[in-house]
Amino acid sequence: MNLSRRDFTKIGSKIVIGAASGPVIIDALVKKARALEISPLRDYDWNEHFWGYVVDTTKCIGCGRCANACKLENEVPFDEPVYRTWVERYRVLKEGEAVIDSPNGSIDGFTDDIPEDEINKAFYVPKICNHCENPPCVQVCPVGATYTTNDGVVLVDYEYCIGCRYCIQACPYGARYYNNEKGTADKCTWCYHRITRGLLPACVKACPVGARKFGDLKDTESEVNKILDRERINVHKPELGTKPKVYYIGLDRVVR
């Protein structure tokens, strides 16, 4: 093939320009797609919803897929001991003592380290931010960087949080953690970017046995409302007056 010097320069510069601009264009497209994904739907009205969460502890099998899905969905670092949701295992021994554990927040599952014949009963309890109606974390934030949305979700404004960690101290459930990268507090958002687009939180979606349910408390026909109407439910540490919105079926008295 004969190439004139002119053609060579032409093709060459096209390749160079293409190689240089290609990633920029692709990056811009990805960014746009991501922005679309995380910004709420334009027709979402937060006054029309009030979210609630139900955990059926009798169904949970402790597979830890929820905790794993959460870290993937919300880019929570896998190599740090920080979790937006986790599963606890309770084993009440025959001698009466309750052994509790949640290795790596249950992400890698559990191992049998106590012989079966020593265990009286055992069960799993998934944990997540309770998005309290009376949240102590919101109360103590000195700058108002953490707040409750109109649809009942407790969020952190990462652009405003000063990183004093008072909210982490104030949460009775250990649901908050410190985000080393951002220098701010961080926590479960009930996948706010998903629920405002009509999707389920990642942990609910990932649960293979339907132990986690999520829905609109303002919708009388929603599954969570039906459960609340029908079942005997409890919440964690009700005596603290935080009014959690994560409701539990089959919550045992040894659960902390």
Partner: peptide
Amino acid sequence: HLGNPQRALSIMFTPHLSSAMS
């Protein structure tokens, strides 16, 4: 100690009064 010390003055400009720290 603050994670974002450059925002420390927010505590003066926009105090969240229900917080004991504000």
